[in-house]
Nucleic acid binder design. Structure first.
Length: 512
DNA sequence: TCTGGGGTCCTAGGACCC
DNA sequence: TCTGGGGTCCTAGGACCC
């Protein structure tokens, strides 16, 4: 809590969907839904046009399609979003040394630490200038909240959406919060909301009236006490620039439940490998291995094992994960598997235990190499890695069919970092169309830049247009193996030289 | 077509130690 | 040698966030 509203919260508007609309002129003003396109996909982001149909984040894709059958459905392109996010974070970094990113599209900035704003007028000016710079640099809009605390700044940016700025004067917090639902307070989700409602507490004013002791009785020591403080508008959490990672994990939901114990074991091994690659890429090792299993009925369990010392050895992690799998009954089927590592240590504190265990298997410097590979992989993801979970949306039903061994149907449904789950290059699966994910960029030797509108039955439909154009481009259909067509990297949303903010990097995926 | 993936923090019980 | 209390670590699960 401070005397001037110098904590800024930035939240990009419908970020993934807006980025797709900016890069694809034909989608501007139209409902766009970004998310997993497999049979078990969910919505990551819906454009404001799609939200008018009732589509929202975390909704199952099937439901979204029923509500908005004519929307454009696209698979996420994280490398692309990450590149845009980097531009935005760079702009934030010019405001203050204290920038705390919460995700690709959201961050707190401590303007006081930056010395740019001392009062409300100054803070507002900085916020408005930031919004203009973001638009000029990325072509996208973001909403800004300004207040004397993190909580209020976040609530303010939510209030400002879309494309706005809201500033709450310090001192007005309590009055402002009092009539609102308890759900407005970050950390109060569906479960806590229900819990409180059963106790007759629905508004923030009710929270205050209930008193700290009562809240502690209902919600427990920590949650109750902090909720009471929040209800009073008290929040002195600082903006923290660097936060150490606490865990690394990967998981896959399968299009069809896995029953075969050998297949399950194989998937666990693959997940362990991916997890370690990420662990090393981040420069860490870890002590505790966690296996996650979601069963056919959506019940979820975890089993964990703590080693004597931290490791980043793939073999050690894999074997631990396999041991943990032995503890789990998988009869009935498994819909999700995950492997994680927690109890992280800096890679430089690498253990002797795992190295001895691996019998000189690990070589010094491997961490750095793994890091480079991981980065390169991300870049590739925008193009060749397109396939994961997408084929299932169009191809699995049309062509490949469910249950095909190693094919689309039984593959991971996740629309995450696609590159990591794609079949080996040159396999039948890839040639069969999995590389043509809806929304991904392509280039045709004659017709130039475009993006995949859809694929199936051996064909891929492409719309030829670029971010800068103002009218929708032409649509053409090709054979999936047309040699004149190939995946390509995203084009910049704003041509360099036209940007208001000098020195911004062009929008290309890192390493791509 | 019923439910993603990557995280964080908290609670609670049991083991173990002093 | 009928019996206490506190601290820390480990494990499992759950709520929440984007």
């Amino acid at each position: 809590m401070r005397a001037a509203p110098t904590i800024l919260h930035l939240d990009m508007d419908a970020f993934f969907a807006a980025a797709e609309q900016a890069s694809k002129p034909s989608l501007r003003g139209k409902p766009v839904v970004v998310g997993g396109l497999g049979p078990r996909g969910v919505v990551a982001t819906a454009s404001y046009e799609a939200r008018r149909f009732g589509v929202h984040s975390a909704m199952p894709m099937g439901q979204a399609r029923r509500l908005a059958p004519n929307a454009a459905y696209l698979v996420p392109r994280f490398a692309f979003y990450r590149a845009i996010s980097g531009q935005v974070m760079e702009l934030l970094g010019r405001l203050s040394p204290l920038v705390e990113p919460l995700s690709l599209d959201e961050a707190f900035v401590d303007l006081e630490a930056g010395g740019l704003a001392e009062d409300s007028a100054g803070a507002r000016a900085v916020g408005e200038r930031l919004r203009a710079e973001i638009l000029a640099t990325t072509g996208l809009t973001g909403s800004v909240g300004l207040a004397g605390s993190k909580m209020l700044a976040k609530i303010a940016s939510e209030e400002a959406k879309p494309d706005g700025l809201v500033l709450y004067e310090p001192g007005t917090e309590r009055a402002l919060l009092a009539p609102r639902s308890v759900r407005i307070i970050p950390g109060v989700g569906p479960a806590t909301g229900d819990h409180l409602r059963r106790a007759g507490i629905t508004t923030v004013a009710d929270l205050v009236e209930a008193g700290e002791d009562e809240l502690v009785r209902i919600l427990g020591r920590s949650h109750g006490a902090s909720l009471f403080r929040m209800a009073l508008g008290h929040d002195d959490r600082p903006v923290v620039a660097e936060r150490d990672a606490k865990s690394v994990s990967v998981e896959d939901t399968f299009d069809i439940d896995l029953h075969d114990r050998l297949r399950i074991r194989l998937e666990v091994e693959r997940l362990a490998e991916r997890c370690v690659a990420r662990l090393r890429g981040s420069g860490h090792s870890g002590r505790t291995i966690v296996l996650k299993v979601r069963r056919y009925d959506f019940s979820t369990l975890t089993r964990s094992e703590t080693l004597r010392g931290p490791t980043d050895d793939p073999l050690v992690v894999r074997e631990a994960a396999e041991r943990l799998l032995e503890l789990v009954d998988t009869t009935g089927g498994v819909r999700l598997l995950g492997v994680g590592v927690s109890g992280l240590a800096d890679y430089t504190q690498e253990d002797l235990f795992a190295q001895a265990e691996a019998e000189a298997g690990a070589e010094a410097g491997a961490g750095a190499e793994a890091g480079a590979e991981a980065e390169a992989g991300v870049g590739v993801g925008a193009g060749a890695g397109a396939g994961a979970g997408v084929g299932a949306g169009t191809d699995a039903r049309a062509g490949a069919g469910r249950g095909t061994v190693g094919g689309a149907a039984a593959g991971p449904a996740g629309a995450g970092e696609a590159v990591e789950v794609v079949a080996a290059p040159g396999t039948a699966a890839e040639a069969g169309g999995r590389r043509w994910a809806p929304g991904h960029d392509v280039r045709h030797v004659v017709l130039g830049a475009g993006w995949v509108q859809g694929s199936g039955l051996g064909r891929v439909t492409v719309r030829f247009e670029e971010p800068g154009s103002t009218v929708p481009g032409r649509v053409r259909t090709f054979a999936v193996d047309d040699p004149e067509l190939e995946p390509s990297d995203p084009l910049p949303l704003v041509p360099s030289g036209v940007t208001g903010a000098e020195g911004a990097a062009p929008v290309t995926p890192s390493g791509g």
